[in-house]
Amino acid sequence: MTAFASIVANTLRGFLGGRRSWMLLALALLPGLVQLIGGLARGSAISSQLYEEFSTQVLFTLLIPAVAITFGANAFGEEKRGKTMAFLTLRPVSRWTIAGAKLAAAWLGASLVGALGAVFAAFALGVGSGQWTEIVPGVVGAGLSALAYSAILLPIGLVMKRATLAGLVYLLLVEQFLARNVEQFSNLSPFRIGTSAYAGLSDFGRVVATFEITNGAVAAGAGGAALKAAAVAVVMWAITGFALRELDLV
């Protein structure tokens, strides 16, 4: 196993082991479960309404940011708290490889949980309303949003002492305030990257319309969203690698 793969595997093992994995699983299944129960009890229209107003909102505004903070901000945050940075960095592995592996692990973890939530919600929609088209948009949107979130939160977790708190501050300040009011931030907002990808792939008109309203000037489209997510990831990977080279690591 290469050093890159070892770091990814060990980071994921730390993230997904024990009680936390059950909590993340519960969080991922929550929107789909609510929708499944509501849809089965009250019919197709209610199921669609729940999907639009509850499941997708919980997915993109709560679940993915929460797992991205857990994985992105803590990819290095847990090494620092656990005082294992020396173990990780005192190896013949380039700082860029370490940064890349941590980003990959954070993205994989966040995407896995986010995609699970998206698939379950889309499945619940299919069961409740017969609309079976939303699995792929949900997974792609969740994956791209998770990539952008994880990448942004990765260096924050490296340089800040309270990584989770710093992640929450980022969400409130940038996502809730700047991205709503400043177009440049809006284009690179992980929330909008995910929802614009979803809107670009979905055939479900009412959800697409909702996301288009929320996203404002950010155009729907999976290709553009993927490019933005990739650009954010590359820039943040470079910043993280540079910080690993230049900062005191313990």
């Binding site: 060990n10 093992r13 730390g14 082991g17 024990g18 656990g82 005082k83 294992t84 020396a86 173990f87 005192l90 313990v250």
Partner: peptide, 13 residues
């Protein structure tokens, strides 16, 4: 090879 002072290991391993 370094053995740092901190009593730090990955406890899940």
């Amino acid at each position: 090879g370094l053995v740092p002072e901190e009593d730090a290991v990955y406890e899940f391993l």
